[in-house]
């Protein structure tokens, strides 16, 4: 059992990622205000980005830019252990842009709902929908 304890402790990035993801999921399900639900959705998305960036990170490595390149990067062999893996970063750049696009659409819908129902609370909106 005790050989697993350092394994749990050194993966603290992943524990925080799981905690943030569950906080976002709880906010999306349990919160009553619509803006709070959108904040929860954004926390969920950044938690997933945190997971992917944590996969690419390593100790004792530098940022993924070739050193001593000077136009001859293809001639010298590159030691991959010296550089952080750039593939998850490139994927997560797309995820950030998609997250701000979904945020804009969600806030536009919230403004429209508020114009129609004069409230942002989910239970009051459902009450008005049931009465009409």
């Amino acid at each position: 059992m005790e050989q697993y304890i350092p394994l749990f402790l050194t993966k603290y990035n992943y524990w925080v990622y799981i905690a943030l993801m569950m906080i976002g999921l709880w906010a999306m399900i349990a919160k009553n205000n619509l803006v709070k639900k959108i904040v929860g959705m954004n926390i969920f998305q950044t938690a997933i980005i945190l997971f992917y960036v944590s996969i690419g990170a390593k100790y004792g490595a530098t940022i993924p830019i070739l050193q001593h390149g000077s136009g001859h990067g293809h001639e010298a062999a590159v030691r991959a252990a010296d550089y952080i893996n750039p593939l998850p970063h490139v994927l997560m750049l797309t995820a950030i842009v998609v997250s701000v696009a979904t945020l804009g659409v969600a806030l536009a819908l919230v403004i429209r709902i508020h114009q129609r129902h004069r409230t942002l609370e989910e239970d009051e909106i459902l009450e008005q929908l049931r009465e009409s």
């Binding site: 950044t46 980005i49 960036v53 944590s54 690419g56 990170a57 490595a61 530098t62 940022i63 993924p64 952080i84 998850p88 970063h89 490139v90 997560m92 750049l93 950030i96 842009v97 997250s99 701000v100």
Partner: peptide, 15 residues
């Protein structure tokens, strides 16, 4: 801190 500088400045401007 994790070395993802491109993601960091995209997040600083967009996020």
């Amino acid at each position: 801190v994790m070395g993802a500088v491109d993601v960091a400045f995209t997040e600083a401007s967009v996020g």
